[in-house]
């Protein structure tokens, strides 16, 4: 069994030798997996916010913003030998953990999902499967061999997309 690569908040990591990729405790954050079918190329990002343009600070952790993390993830996969036009994506997360936080700024989960899809669309990466929204936290595991994304929640059990 291959050692699992764990991705922390706002981080990006790549699977070299088909090691599964895992990230835990996704709330409003979105876990994005970009991979190439029939190859070992796969990477995962734990994205926390939609866009770096709202920040006045220059340097951030690479996986924090959708509009920085997804282009980075894609170009690194291509640098490693993947073909741009064969890349596909699966995403999970974007929940709203606290229902009363109704105002626009706090609906981060929803805005994250929109931003992630926009980026994938711009890069012509087709979104194969998603499990987004709701009010539950998620832990996800991607197996590059089967390209199955396993999603665990506290209240709703486990599912595979």
């Amino acid at each position: 069994m291959n050692k699992v690569i764990t991705i922390g908040m706002a981080e990006i990591a790549y699977s070299e030798l088909s090691q599964p990729l895992r990230t835990s405790g996704l709330g409003s954050c979105v876990g994005v997996i970009i991979y190439q079918e029939g190859s070992n190329h796969a990477g995962m990002a734990h994205i926390m916010l939609p866009s770096a343009s709202i920040s006045t600070k220059k340097v951030h952790k690479i996986g924090k913003f959708a509009d920085v993390a997804i282009p980075e993830l894609t170009s690194e996969l291509v640098r490693r030998g993947a073909s741009t036009y064969r890349l596909k994506a699966k995403i999970a997360g974007g929940a709203q953990m606290f229902a009363s936080s109704g105002n626009e700024m706090m609906r981060v989960g929803e805005r994250n999902v929109v931003a992630v899809k926009e980026q994938l669309n711009q890069l012509n990466i087709s979104l194969v499967a998603e499990d987004t929204g709701g009010t539950n936290g998620r832990t996800i595991l991607f197996d590059p061999k089967t390209q199955a994304l396993t999603i665990r929640t506290v209240h709703l059990g486990t599912k595979v997309i």
Partner: peptide
Amino acid sequence: SIDMAGAIISH
């Protein structure tokens, strides 16, 4: 919210 600590703190 009753859930994973990581999901709760990210909010």
